[in-house]
Nucleic acid binder design. Sequence first.
DNA 1: TATGAATGAGCTTTCATTCAT
DNA 2: TATGAATGAAAGCTCATTCAT
Lengths: 219, 219, 219, 219
Amino acid sequence: MEIDKPVLRKDPNGEPNPMPVIARKALKPRTKPAEVRRDDILRAATSLFVAKGVGTTTIDEIATRAEVAKGTFYLYFTSKEDVVAALRERFVAGFRARILSAIEARPPDDWTGRLMSFVSAGITAYLDDHRLHDVVFHDHRPDQRQMKGDNPLIGDLSTLLAAGAKAGAWSVDDPDLAAIVLFNGLHGAVDHAIERGVRDGSGLAANLSALFLRMVRPE
Amino acid sequence: MEIDKPVLRKDPNGEPNPMPVIARKALKPRTKPAEVRRDDILRAATSLFVAKGVGTTTIDEIATRAEVAKGTFYLYFTSKEDVVAALRERFVAGFRARILSAIEARPPDDWTGRLMSFVSAGITAYLDDHRLHDVVFHDHRPDQRQMKGDNPLIGDLSTLLAAGAKAGAWSVDDPDLAAIVLFNGLHGAVDHAIERGVRDGSGLAANLSALFLRMVRPE
Amino acid sequence: MEIDKPVLRKDPNGEPNPMPVIARKALKPRTKPAEVRRDDILRAATSLFVAKGVGTTTIDEIATRAEVAKGTFYLYFTSKEDVVAALRERFVAGFRARILSAIEARPPDDWTGRLMSFVSAGITAYLDDHRLHDVVFHDHRPDQRQMKGDNPLIGDLSTLLAAGAKAGAWSVDDPDLAAIVLFNGLHGAVDHAIERGVRDGSGLAANLSALFLRMVRPE
Amino acid sequence: MEIDKPVLRKDPNGEPNPMPVIARKALKPRTKPAEVRRDDILRAATSLFVAKGVGTTTIDEIATRAEVAKGTFYLYFTSKEDVVAALRERFVAGFRARILSAIEARPPDDWTGRLMSFVSAGITAYLDDHRLHDVVFHDHRPDQRQMKGDNPLIGDLSTLLAAGAKAGAWSVDDPDLAAIVLFNGLHGAVDHAIERGVRDGSGLAANLSALFLRMVRPE
DNA sequence: TATGAATGAGCTTTCATTCAT
DNA sequence: TATGAATGAAAGCTCATTCAT
């Protein structure tokens, strides 16, 4: 707060210096492109969050693991929550990309195939990253509720259902509601599977697809 | 029953109290039954958690609102999480009781009616208490995942579906999976409705029931 | 911020425990009357502030010197500035008491004597405590300006001048302004003396009194 | 003179710059004369200090407002305190110049007029710049005390009083002491006026002059 | 049982200063 | 000269938990 701070500065890199300066330089460039630094921090945070939870991970730990000073952390993020938010964005985007690309691999009019791709890609992606998922979706904020609603995958699913219905392949009264039920049903089913230690989602995919197809099959 | 809890017993310097102990005791039985005390604390915690979140509520605040000393809190609970767990148990039990009693109001062989009761009672109960629900289900712990699996309502639903199928009313391949999808679908649909500010769940109940019945209807 | 904090607790008093518990108890009662604790902290802060300035003194140091935990500090004060404010109040009250009692030692109608007492008591008191004075009056706040104006001693002085004038002993056109000039003149003169290392204020008192009396003497 | 200071020179990856150095130099003499740079920084600091205090202003902010890199700041000043000291010097010099020139506007033997000019110019100058005054004189350092003593205006005033006395216009026993009292009295009186929101100092000047003249008038 | 003063580890955040470019 | 990313020491403050009464 005040003017007269004591100034103590030791060895700025803090480690015994057995190596010539030039070699050190090569190993540890003081400055990296911002993108890389940011990514270093994000990666460090991810592994810590997954390993020990967001709450118990300190910013100190994140900085240390990212091989960055604590102050540097604050150059890139404003708080731990800010990191979680960045991770969440990343996670959602990657998750969605995986699923969409699986769908696109099917012919446009293969409605059943597209839905099954959605289901199996969703299961696989979730099984792969569920620990990161948990990290990224478990905060306390009351506006948290909002975020689910923004889930673009539900919109994608709704669009798929509506298109299939329009094409006469399915019968769907309320595509939005059906999409919500399907997405959350899938989500819950994978949670259940994870609890049981399931590693391979193909069986679940078949069963879920069957269930979902029943729900949309014409009378 | 709560005759005389002293609000202020300041005696900061410990002067000898002129009143004999026995007389004091007779006048001031300072304790409440443990159940009541516990409940005071639980109620105080609930309102604070709902108002400002678990993370930002301190044990000090809980104790103050419960009109109890901080030390007394630790006589009844070991930590804040312990309180959340107690609240969760309560919540789940109440929630389930509401739904089961709605189901039981229907004739045992009215399968469709029973499922619809499940849906509409579930929606109503959740709409009523979703803020407490959020409090009670939003912590970070990795073992959190476990709790959903323990959700007895999914078991109840599975039982209902299996019984209906056995009775020939429905066709259900995997009642457990169907129950999971139904329960989570319902959960997600209500979340969605809450986000949109929906206060009355009857429309949603009708639509959801229709969707669910499609899923179990015989070929 | 979060729920799952690691709990590490070692030896609560942190020192090797060579002494029997009873003896320890006698030496270090865990709890003291609030007044005493507060005073412990205030005394610790004073000595540190005087020795090394407010800015460079940390709350940690204050707590340590007061033999109190850091948290205890915050039980009694909200910040370092809060301590300075408490010290300032104390200082002003004591300073004023000294001067007023010196004045009261003179007969009520001994106007010259009263003014001289004011001057010499003021000089002495300030010489005695000027380091604490500096500590207590050197913060940055813009509203600082306000505080000087609230200085009750200027009011006291103004009253004295007005009374002496009314009694016909002096001629004072604007007692408030004269009081301000006298007080600040005295203040500055003592500052000057302190800079020069003066320890005894009696010579200064005589000279200043003479000057002040010139200022109020009738035509 | 400031032809082309680049606002953004982002070159984050350090790609080799295709433009030859000499041509670049000709186009972009990136430096300003040291005096100007220094002044930029001083001006930036002044406005920030006045607006939000020295303690809460960071060097980052100063550099940003001066449109200079943080490192450049350290090319011109060694610390924030260094800036305050430079500002103080400036302030004192300007203040003194204003007062001296007001005095010099009077005939050399117009003692009363000279003293009145001192008073009214002092009041005006202080009223004009009191916020900068506060900034520049409000730090914590114990050696602060020294600076007042160095105040050359007190010396000027003492010289004036001694000269007037020597000329037989006044009676002044101890010109140094009288100068101290006058200067500090004036200072305090203006502070008091500022607190009361006074904008025009002419009334105060008349009253103060009268008071001061009483103090030096011959028996 | 009940109390609440006391504890202190630990966290977040700031910012003056450096230095490779 | 000029830059600004990086540093990391330091500080303020919180709050779950204890324990003597």
